[in-house]
Design a protein around this nucleic acid. Structure first.
Lengths: 194, 194
DNA sequence: TTCTTATTATACCAATCGGTATATAATATG
DNA sequence: CATATTATATACCGATTGGTATAATAAGAA
């Protein structure tokens, strides 16, 4: 792992633990075993470092999502949601620190700098998930513009499940299976009564 | 409104907009029209101010929640969830800034100071909601310890709905009705198929 | 009036914030 | 070899961070 990569990973670890705003550039440099000017040479600014981190991990997530929802009949909502759930779970397991750091930024105040930086990644995810529900208008009846509400609800359910698992202290690896994905999708589609 | 109250409201407004970590004590004092020593006289520290704020608003939320889930047959899950949803929506409307600030703290990194400060309030909420599902073990069948998962799922759905409404830029006031609460509870209980 | 307690302001603290000017190695290219 | 580019360190910048020592003011109680 080269120098730049190492700085990104060290920064992510600190952001994940204490948050973007409370971690100083100085500390990132110390943990990375470099000095501040080296960091600024690579990333121009603290926000540039964050952008670089989001770009690096976000592109992986978006690629996985696109792969999950493609190559199926457009009407198969349940199938697509299953693939989607698996993609998110897998990503949350292999990129646990970024996943939860992304979640923390999603819920950050609207005018917070870090929030503004992650908006594009969030928007893109919502766009892709909303499309799934739009293509499902046939099997789900007239949605009357509720596609976005459904997309938000589905992702909310998913994120919520990951949070609960993480808080339980269970090894995330154990939820990496189709049964878990099915449980989440089923609850979203049919509720807890069933 | 006395001096102390005014400082709390000004601080909340700033925290809501940019986050606890990025707002300095100096700025809070300036916006409040007082000086730093005055703030420290009242709250001892920046974290003391946050504690005071959480205590003030949190006690209202907890009171509303307790009121919502009490005084009904223990088995009436749907009824209790409806009351619960109404309580959260009402609180989210009348204390919009605190509600979303609380959300942002809920998803903050585990070792973040502000997160550690709000933990007790979050735990108490989860405890109260989990109890609803525990009492419903009869009508919902054996839950096998899924009460907490249900509580988290329900609150997640609720918060998610509020976020979407807020992002749409719609006046929060318009969702303060029983139909909205019913829609949320119904989706949670029976899924989006129905 | 005098004493006590509750407020408020001036002025300061060391430490840290994000960021940079400058110089020097190291490496690649001609 | 010489030149250009990449990569790294020393030392510093002004501004802000959370927090405080000290003193003055205001107000209520004796």
């Amino acid at each position: 792992m080269d120098n730049k990569e190492n700085i990104l990973e060290c920064a992510l670890h600190l952001f994940f633990k204490r948050g973007y705003d409370t971690v100083g550039v100085q500390e990132i440099a110390e943990v990375s075993g470099i000095t501040k000017p080296t960091l600024y040479y690579y990333f121009k600014s603290k926000n540039g470092l964050l952008k670089s981190l989001i770009e690096k991990k976000g592109s992986i997530l978006l690629r996985d999502i696109k792969e999950a929802v493609s190559g199926m009949e457009v009407g198969d909502v349940q199938g697509k949601l299953l693939h989607l759930a698996r993609a998110y779970i897998d990503f949350g397991v292999k990129e646990e620190e970024f996943y939860f750091f992304m979640l923390s930024l999603m819920y950050s105040p609207r005018e917070n700098e870090a929030y503004l930086t992650i908006i594009p990644l969030i928007r893109e995810q919502y766009y892709l998930v909303t499309k799934v529900f739009e293509q499902a208008a046939g099997s789900l009846g007239n949605m009357n513009g509720r596609q976005e509400q459904f997309a938000a609800g589905f992702l909310g359910t998913l994120h919520c499940f990951m949070m609960v698992q993480s808080e339980k202290g269970i090894e995330m690896q154990t939820i990496r299976n189709d049964a878990t994905a099915y449980a989440i999708v089923h609850q979203f589609l049919h509720g807890i009564y069933s």
